[in-house]
Write a protein that binds this DNA or RNA. Structure first.
Lengths: 166, 166
DNA sequence: AGTACATCGTTAGTGGGGCTAACGCAACAG
DNA sequence: CTGTTGCGTTAGCCCCACTAACGATGTACT
């Protein structure tokens, strides 16, 4: 629910956090997710990359050239934000944007050789970061942890609108 | 790492998400945390409350009156944001702010009777929301899940600056 | 007593992420 | 040929985590 980073200003004496807060799964998730985000952003930042870059490159690598809209669906990045991400990737020559001759509404996005290289570097970094993130867990526990997360996620994404039939 | 909500505009055919993405714990955490946040915000919103309200009230309930700075440390809310939160809570008569006679820099924050009532309602709502959030898990699994989260969190909060001694 | 430093509450502002709205254009279905 | 749907793009909103700086007060040191 909250961060635990210590502001330069606001020194961390260890004042106790109330029990109800400490136990809430929502709060734990929020804090760890924040920590994970920090780790990832910082790590990728060292390669002048952001997590969206990874998502897009990974998607292109795995499924080949795609339209922006499809990429958007695969990665979960909003169409509106995809524009900027692709601009950044194009600047760095990791992708190419070309109009689709078969459907002139579309852009076809292709990963370049340098893009593939970059992706490999990112993958390496992410592996390391995950090692840090999950450091206290044995590899069996890690496996089980991500499985649990996946189950939760599945439950909540299938659980779409599901409007009462009435 | 990304959201999965489907924009009204951008319909969700089920386009597949690349494997590397689906497996990354950081992404799973991010998505579930987002979902959890949505659930919580929406649920508390129904009582015209926000998660910070809960954090502050719970803290006051458990430790009694405190200064803003201490509350800030307990809850993880930044001193700068605490101001606004306390304003909202004071508007609703859930807390009272009074200058500390013993240290004129401080405000002493006290929870009111109505604040306690409100806290009880919030607790109830959060319990329900967590039921929904963790629905696919058995109670043993929930227990273990939160324990794992706690372990992870502990690891990363103890792991403070810890600068190389060199 | 005087000076340096820390802490307190507060205001302002930054940057990113998630998300909505609306637009012009192209494709397609009737 | 008309209405609908999908596309890429621009703009903007709100929330959250976080930083910076300020004036006022308290504490410690000499």
């Amino acid at each position: 629910m909250t961060s635990r980073a210590e502001a330069a200003d606001m020194p961390n004496d260890q004042t106790e956090t109330p029990d109800r807060l400490r136990r809430r799964a929502s709060r734990l998730l929020s804090l760890i997710s924040a920590q994970s985000d920090r780790l990832v952003s910082e790590g990728l930042g060292r390669l002048d990359a952001r997590k969206w870059h990874y998502a897009v490159l990974a998607s292109l690598q795995e499924y080949g050239p795609d339209s922006q809209a499809t990429l958007s669906r695969r990665t979960g990045i909003y169409r509106s934000d995809m524009v900027g991400v692709l601009n950044e990737l194009a600047e760095r020559d990791f992708i190419e944007r070309a109009p689709d001759p078969e459907d002139r509404r579309r852009n076809v996005i292709t990963i370049t050789t340098q893009g593939r290289q970059h992706l490999r570097r990112l993958d390496k970094i992410l592996d390391d970061l995950h090692d840090e993130l999950l450091a206290p867990l044995t590899s069996a526990e890690r496996e089980q942890f991500t499985q649990t997360l996946t189950r939760l996620l599945d439950h909540h994404t299938r659980q779409a609108p599901h409007p009462p039939i009435s």
